[in-house]
Design a protein around this nucleic acid. Structure first.
Length: 283
DNA sequence: ATGCGCCTGGGA
DNA sequence: TCCCAGGCGCAT
C-alpha cells in the first residue's frame, strides 16, 4: 500500500516525464460510469493546461498546472499513476487517462477504488493539506517535535499515534511497524509513557525507515502490489524486519519470533524481545 | 478512542 | 463462502 516512500517513488518517476508537458485530452473508459461522469468537467478544466511541477506532501501528489490549479491525487490502497504510450493497451484496473502533447498518457488505475483524483484551486489545495502533521524527513521534525506531535495521552498507543496523519504525516501500517521495531518500542506503549530516550530513538527510526524506503523505491509484496510510474516494483521488501514476517525469526535479536496482533484496526507486527511490553504497575 | 464502511481480489 | 488486506472519513 502506498505510504510516503511509495508516493515519493512515484513522484520522482513522474518528475522525469511531466514538467513542461501540456494536457490535450481527458478520457475514462465507457465501463467506468463514475469516472466517465467527471470526464467532461475535467476535459474543460484541464485541456490546454501545462504541467509545471510534481510535488508531494505526505501521501498526496500534486501536479501544478497553469492558472494555479493543481491535480491532486491520493493513491490510498491500490491506486497507481503511470506514464504510458498512448497506444499501449490499458491496464486491468484503468480508470482515467490524461493525454499529453508528446504522445504519452498519464494514467490512473485503482483496483479497490479508494484512490482520489481532484482538480483544486489554491484554497482547495490548502484545505486538503491543512490538517497534515510533520513531514517525516523534515529537519524540523526533531525529538522535541516528535514528543509534541505524539502528545502525552496515557492511553493512546504509540502505533495508533504514528498512523494519525495529523501528528506525523506519511507513515502507514508498514513503516509504522518498522519504525517501532527499529526504536525498540512495543506498539501498544502509551505515548504518554515514552521516555526521552525512546522518543529520541523513535525520531531517528522514523527517518531511517522512511529514507530507506525511498532509497529502495518503495515496498512491493507481489505481482498485484505497488508499482512506480513506469510499472517497476520497489525493492524495500528485503529490508523489512517485522512487517508481514510474523512467525519468522527476528532478524535483529536472532532468538525470538515475530508476533502479530490487531491494534487500531490494523495488523501489527513486532518482536517481543526487541520490543518488550511496558510492565504496568497495578498500584 | 474505537469501529464501521468504502471496495475488490486472493486465499483458506 | 467467508475472511482478510488497509487509508481515511465518519459515526458512535
Amino acid at each position: 500500500m502506498p505510504e510516503l516512500p511509495e508516493v515519493e517513488t512515484v513522484r520522482r518517476g513522474l518528475e522525469r516525464a511531466l514538467p513542461g508537458r501540456r494536457i490535450v485530452a481527458v478520457s475514462a473508459p465507457e465501463t467506468e460510469p463514475t469516472w466517465l461522469a467527471w470526464q467532461a468537467a475535467w476535459q474543460a478544466a484541464l485541456t490546454g493546461r501545462a504541467i509545471h511541477a510534481v510535488r508531494r506532501r505526505a501521501k498526496f501528489l500534486m501536479l501544478d498546472l497553469d492558472d494555479d490549479l493543481a491535480l491532486v491525487v491520493h493513491l490510498r490502497m491500490t491506486g497507481a499513476l503511470t506514464v504510458n504510450q498512448a497506444d499501449e493497451p490499458p491496464a486491468r484496473f484503468h480508470r482515467v487517462a490524461l493525454r499529453l502533447d508528446n504522445g504519452t498518457e498519464l494514467r490512473f488505475g485503482d483496483m479497490r477504488r479508494f484512490g482520489t483524483v481532484e482538480v483544486l484551486d489554491p484554497a482547495g489545495l490548502a484545505a486538503r493539506l491543512a490538517a497534515l502533521g510533520h513531514e517525516p524527513l523534515d529537519d524540523a521534525l526533531d525529538a522535541a517535535a516528535v514528543r509534541a506531535a505524539l502528545g502525552r495521552s496515557p492511553r493512546l498507543a504509540t502505533k495508533a499515534a504514528l498512523l494519525d496523519q495529523r501528528r506525523i504525516a506519511g507513515l502507514g501500517n508498514i513503516y509504522a511497524d518498522e519504525s517501532l521495531h527499529r526504536a525498540g518500542i512495543h506498539p501498544q506503549t502509551p505515548v504518554g509513557t515514552l521516555t526521552d530516550a525512546e522518543i529520541a530513538r523513535l525520531t531517528v527510526a522514523i527517518k531511517e525507515v522512511i529514507a530507506g524506503g525511498v532509497a529502495h523505491n518503495g515496498t512491493t509484496f507481489d505481482a498485484e502490489g505497488f508499482r512506480d510510474a513506469y510499472g517497476n516494483p520497489g525493492g524495500n521488501l528485503a529490508f523489512l524486519r517485522v512487517y508481514h514476517r510474523h512467525g519468522q525469526p527476528c532478524l535483529t535479536c536472532g532468538k525470538d519470533t515475530i508476533a502479530q496482533m490487531r491494534l487500531a484496526g490494523r495488523s501489527t507486527h513486532w518482536c517481543p524481545t526487541c520490543q518488550p511490553e511496558r510492565v504496568v504497575s497495578s498500584r
